[in-house]
């Protein structure tokens, strides 16, 4: 079975883009293109450590290179989903759809992630996680208000 969450990069492809990236890194002149290509291969690796590295590179790009935002969000969602960090993945998908509602490619990704969660019996857990987050957020707001009142 192959889909966007299960297909993997060939080691030789990963090596090729890794080499370009490292050459640029050595010269202290990394282009967003080289970093993105390397990260795109990393998040499709079968090794979680590679995927994690890819996510770090994409997060960095997301902060520094506005032009590619939609690309970075999309592959951040894929990377985190592959690491089974499903709430994070769905958050990336949601941020994307907030900017571009109705993007079929991203809606499909959302469905693929949810199907994978269902298969792993994780839907309930993610929802529980969501509740904890929400409670955390409310407590956070409460604390902020309390803080304001005090000062």
């Amino acid at each position: 079975m192959a889909d966007v969450l299960t297909e993997t990069v060939l080691p030789e492809d990963l090596k090729r883009f890794e080499k370009i990236y490292h050459e640029q890194l050595y010269k202290n002149d990394v282009t967003p293109k080289a970093q993105f290509e390397y990260a795109w291969c990393l998040v499709r690796s079968k090794y979680p450590a590679d995927i994690q590295k890819g996510i770090v590179l994409l997060e960095e790009l997301y902060k520094t290179h506005e032009e590619g935002h939609r690309d970075y969000l999309y592959y951040l969602a894929i990377g985190t989903a592959r690491l089974k960090e499903y709430s994070k993945a769905l958050n990336y998908v949601r941020s994307f759809l907030a900017i571009e509602p109705g993007n079929q490619q991203v809606i499909t990704l959302q469905q693929t992630i949810k199907k994978k969660m269902e298969k792993e019996g994780l839907v309930g857990m993610a929802m529980a996680g969501g509740v904890v987050l929400a409670v955390g957020a409310i407590v956070g707001v409460g604390m902020a208000i309390a803080h304001k009142v005090k000062s």
Binding site: D3, V4, W40, D71, Y74, Y75, E100, Q104, Q105, T108
Partner: peptide
């Protein structure tokens, strides 16, 4: 899809 956004990387069907 009358206005299909640009594909990101690759799409699968």
């Amino acid at each position: 899809m009358a206005d299909c956004p640009h594909t990101i990387g690759v799409e699968f069907g």
